[in-house]
Amino acid sequence: MLALVVDDSRAMRSIIKNIIKTEGFTFVEAGHGLEALAVLETGEVPDLALVDWNMPEMNGLEFVQAVRANERFNTMKILMVTTETEFEYMSRALEAGANEYLMKPFDRAALRGKLEMIGLIAPTEIQDNE
């Protein structure tokens, strides 16, 4: 499976990539929404986009709106991964077409859980004492 990681922080992209790599994803990346749209135009449609909110050039919400306006990307699941924790932001992201919403900071289990919720990976039982 292919994931598009969109975040203006290289460190955050790295954290996300390290987690999803262990779930079998390969990835492409971008530092803001416009760059992410350019990546989408030239390559295959990813299965998943993990999208920050606050970025230069084009923010995450605008990116989601642009992507959802294009039928070519209908199959791509979108997970917002952002420091914005207000319900208003969650509502706007979900209404725009994001499939789920993850607040930073997060841990591996939380990201994994979100990927389960949007049907990209199979649920596994959490073992005690992990």
Partner: peptide
């Protein structure tokens, strides 16, 4: 905590069944 509601709870459920 935020870490706890991040784990396993779909965002629509968080919005519907929790307050800040």
């Amino acid at each position: 905590s935020q870490l706890e509601v991040n784990r396993g709870l779909p965002a629509p459920m968080l919005m519907k069944h929790f307050t800040r």
